[in-house]
Design a protein around this nucleic acid. Structure first.
Lengths: 226, 226
DNA sequence: TGGGAATGATAGTATTACTATTCTTTTAAG
DNA sequence: CTTAAAAGAATAGTAATACTATCATTCCCA
């Protein structure tokens, strides 16, 4: 059995550390499930409180509002992704092989496992696919960015961008390419399921995968001109 | 002076055609400006009604809700984009040149002009950049898709995907590539302005442009293996 | 045992999204 | 003209949401 891991997220993302109490853990655990079931718009702190048998203000004690809770969950997800990415590449030396493994981690759908206690990884993945962009597409981005709340996302992108630069130091857009790939990997999954005319990637059946598409895209993009 | 153009959008996007009355035109005109100023979340029909000197139910007479109004505006934008794209490529025969011109249209930021009466194109562009993904990232996508409300977006993607296939019939992911490019062109602009550590593209200053990044990306991606 | 901090519950408020109903104007027929 | 039907717009709601001020309880250390 693998060790349960604990990931750090920025303190400013919560008012009170939800991992420090039983109630806090329930809040995070059930928030993931309810966001997955209801979607971000229909999810409310009142419904969440009812479900875990507590009251609205108790939830507000942990998170300022639902937008911050979403940002907490996505930040946690990015940190977890970076951890998995480092784990997958730690013993690999050749730059191209490292990048290939990193891309495989970045673009592969998450299925359920139990490395993380009380976290439904598959549900969290679906929430990230459908709603992560809403954590920065709003009026307060600039203020939140000044507070450093997007650090884990930036760090992840930087890590992969550095791998690209190692493979081809002459490529001019490593960061833009990585952020495009990360967002596209979610988008293609969402399109395959809901707007299938926008992609060749298939939902839940045999067919070309997002991983194939994006891995091919990256290696062709950064290949030195021949 | 260029002819003012009129674009068709699906009838189901509105309850009553806003172009058919003075009030309807004001609703669309001011909605664009207010969405740009306030962002999608803070924008309400009440505020809009107040601004144009009418009442909430009068606005609801034209659009079912604010999500439909957003979808109307983005659909209109995609139709307009396709129109511009056809205009730019109509007299060009070589497949590669056509694709290059299409990508230039797709990825270039919109600046103000007066071809469209009562529409602030630059404001609409900013709204599309910041909020267009919210028109499909919600619970009702599947129902709205069944109603055909995403047709203009699909048609645009298909048009460009066909251009890619003409350049290289062997490329396996034309649609996925186009939807990635379209979304990325907005995202890179948004990141450049709000989260600049996620991209090499610069906001409002000299530096590599989104067009350069994405044009390079597409042509490298579809280049036949040498 | 008693005072303060931490936690939680009660009961609000302002705003939002939306609607049922009424009022007014326009139009069109007799 | 007159009047009746239809269309358009305004009034005045409601239920739900996002949050908060206040009050009550428990816990912990002195």
């Amino acid at each position: 059995m693998t060790q349960p891991i604990r990931l750090q997220v920025d303190e400013k993302l919560h008012l009170k550390d939800p991992t420090s109490t039983e109630l806090g853990q329930s809040v995070v655990e059930q928030a993931i499930l309810m966001l997955d079931e209801l979607g971000y718009e229909a999810f409310t702190f009142r419904k969440l409180a009812e479900r875990i048998g507590t009251t609205e203000p108790s939830v507000y004690r942990y998170f300022k509002n639902k937008q911050r809770l979403l940002l907490y969950l996505t930040s946690w997800y990015w940190s977890w992704m970076e951890y998995r990415l480092l784990l997958a590449t730690v013993n690999v030396v050749p730059a191209e092989a490292r990048l290939r493994l990193a891309l495989a981690e970045l673009t592969r759908p998450i299925v359920a496992d139990d490395t993380l206690p009380r976290i439904d990884e598959a549900a969290l993945y679906r929430v990230v696919v459908a709603d992560s962009s809403k954590s920065y597409l709003h009026r307060d981005v600039d203020a939140e960015n000044r507070e450093g709340l997007f650090r884990s996302y930036k760090r992840l992108c930087r890590t992969v961008a550095d791998m690209i630069t190692e493979v081809n130091p002459g490529y001019r857009f490593p960061l833009a390419l990585v952020s495009t790939v990360v967002e596209s990997s979610h988008m293609q999954k969402y399109f395959a399921e809901h707007l299938p005319r926008l992609t060749e990637v298939k939902h839940g059946q045999a067919g070309p995968s997002t991983s194939e598409f994006l891995t091919d895209l990256v290696f062709r993009a950064i290949a030195p001109a021949s």
